[in-house]
Write a protein that binds this DNA or RNA. Structure first.
Length: 538
RNA sequence: CGGGGGUUAGCUCAGUUGGUUAGAGCAGAGGACUCAUAAUCCUUGGGUCGCGGGUUCAAGUCCCGCACCCCCGACCA
């Protein structure tokens, strides 16, 4: 009775600076997805890490007088620390593209593409800007008054440069890709982003330069394949190596291994909208060429804007994840990011918006409902979950609404619609608050103790279901709630390597609270936000 | 320039295959209650659905034009 596999990844980060809240958005959302699947009975493998090769890393390292590997190690450690200590990311492996097995995997996929006849040696020529370290197309450049040619976008001088490069026959895959998209309409989401990709491919694809000779910080192109053609040392274009990390994490190139058979193809790649082309075009084409299965889904999330403005260093509105979690608390941040805006669209945050969610959704609607119902249980039910009497229509209605949340959430998570899952869950919480007020157990206390017990039971049971579903989003707080409700500990809220079985798994969703379970005097789980600035001003 | 998306109550947004008085949350106003984290519940929203035309018995919902905003237009992680 082995669990079904669920293999998912984030994009690997190019470690050229401190991670900001936008990075955190991707890690957190992926973490929520991973925890949900674990609690729902899947054998999850969640891969994240760093993309460490490339000219910029090499140059930065030279400037600092250290090796590229030393620099990459330092920066990778910074990212990993944020994952571990600030965001609580439950990855199964933090992969680095400098890992030994990744070199093997990258060279193995290269060989497969050569075997398929899809790699050939040629010359890459174009307008190159030394300062920007990139090529520009003819249209992207302009000749100015001084007679020199400049990049229009960045204003840096460009020179005509030709360099030897290996090319991948991407053009060959134009039609196969289009056929694949047509046959797999859910391959990428959201639909609007996927459409952009399709339109791009419909214009026809050109072959892709996939190696470099001007620097050496990268995965070497297998020497035995090149020695007959050139004396130059080629390293792989970073994207060939970077994308291949998803295969490395699955055990490639051991394609006959149990692990690879189980993990590949990946169930989900989570990425940002800036790299959709690499994941939706290049990556499937590489895999087709290598004779490997294609991932089942690529989910493209939006970007985070600070009060409607793009985050940028020059504007000075870049937010560090730690600054947020210190101000609002990690669980509130996680909840806000997933509840506030639809995944796949850009989102804009303000301090007031975060505080609003934290106070109204968490402290008031959820935290306070738990606090008031549990307090009554402690004071009026001998400190234990009360007996359940005969159910009224109102009882059945609110229980039924809570019951539906698991299926609603499963469907939503299947397409990474976290926003919708949480919206429905909090709608039911609103109904539960109305139910509680209408039943007025504090009145029943004087007239009908048995009925009061039933109302308190029903309320607590709704809270149990909501808390179970809240675990992936707010692991710490949901755990506290389940503790307070007397649900026996199990599963560790979807953490890496936790069993994720037992009364806190979704398998137990359809069960119910055990009458007689002792309940302690509750402590507020979601405190209201206290704004130090307002205090000072007041 | 070409292609795509958007423009709905103070704010953030839902609005199915066109059909009675255009919805939710938050904020605001009034009331209720007192179990609870001054939380909760009830009541309360006369917004030209960006602008101008058109199709239709009927359009936020389809068509055309215009304005503004955003996205994409190949090797930049």
């Amino acid at each position: 009775m082995s669990k079904p596999s669920y293999y998912m990844t984030t994009a690997i980060t190019y470690p050229n600076g401190e991670p900001h809240i936008g990075h955190a958005y991707e890690y957190i959302s992926a973490d929520v997805m991973a925890r949900f699947k674990r609690i729902d009975g899947y054998d999850v493998r969640f891969l994240t890490g760093t993309d460490e090769h490339g000219q910029k890393v090499q140059q930065t390292a030279e400037k600092e007088g250290i090796t590229p590997y030393e620099l990459a190690t330092r920066n990778a450690q910074a990212i990993k620390t944020v994952d571990d200590e600030v965001l609580g990311i439950s990855y199964d492996r933090f992969i680095r593209t400098t890992d030994e097995d990744h070199y093997e995997a990258s060279q193995a996929i290269w060989r497969r593409m050569v075997d398929a006849g899809d790699i050939y040696l040629d010359t890459y020529a174009g307008w190159y800007s030394v300062r920007d370290e990139r090529f520009f197309t003819e249209e992207e450049t302009e000749v100015r008054e001084d007679g020199e040619r400049y990049a229009a976008e960045t204003g840096t001088p460009v020179t005509w440069t030709e360099e030897e490069s290996y090319f991948f026959r991407l053009s060959k895959y134009t039609q196969p890709l289009l056929d694949f998209y047509a046959a797999n309409p859910d391959f990428a989401g959201p639909r609007s982003r996927f459409n952009e990709v399709i339109r791009f491919v419909e214009q026809g694809l050109e072959d892709l330069s996939i190696s470099r000779t001007t620097f050496d910080w990268g995965v070497p192109v297998p020497k035995d394949l090149t020695e007959g053609e050139t004396s130059l040392d080629h390293v792989m274009y970073v994207w060939v190596d970077a994308l291949t990390n998803y295969l490395t994490g699955a055990g490639f190139p051991e394609v006959d291994s149990e692990a690879f058979g189980r993990r590949w193809p990946a169930d989900l790649h989570i990425i940002g909208k800036d790299i959709s082309r690499f994941h939706c075009i290049f990556w499937p084409a590489f895999l087709m060429s290598a004779g490997l299965d294609l991932p089942k889904r690529v989910m493209i999330h939006g970007f985070l804007h600070n009060a409607g403005e793009k985050m940028s260093k020059s504007v000075g509105n870049v937010v560090a994840p730690a600054a947020w979690t210190e101000t609002y608390g990690l669980d509130a941040v996680r909840f806000f990011l997933l509840r506030e805006f639809p995944y796949g669209q850009d989102g804009s945050y303000t301090h007031d918006a975060v505080v609003g969610r934290k106070n109204s959704d968490l402290a008031n609607n959820l935290g306070n409902l738990a606090q008031r119902s549990l307090s009554m249980i402690v004071k009026n039910c001998e400190g234990a979950v009360p007996q359940l009497g005969e159910l009224t229509e109102e009882d059945r209605a609110i229980l039924a609404q809570a019951e539906e949340l698991l299926e609603i959430s499963r469907k939503a998570y299947e397409v990474q619609d976290f926003h919708h899952a949480l919206e429905r869950t909090w709608f039911v919480l609103g109904e539960a608050n109305a139910y509680f007020a209408e039943m007025a157990p504090w009145q029943l206390k004087k007239t009908d103790l048995e009925r009061m017990g039933t109302v308190l039971y029903v309320t607590a049971e709704v809270l149990r279901k909501v808390s179970l579903l809240a675990q992936p989003v707010m692991p710490t707080s949901a755990t506290k709630l389940l503790d307070a409700l007397g649900v026996p500990a199990s599963g560790d809220a979807g953490a890496t390597d936790a069993s994720n079985e037992g009364p806190r798994s979704f398998a137990a969703f359809g069960e119910a609270l055990e009458p007689g379970t002792p309940i302690d005097k509750p402590e507020p789980v979601f405190p209201r936000h206290e704004d130090p600035d307002e205090k000072a001003e007041a």
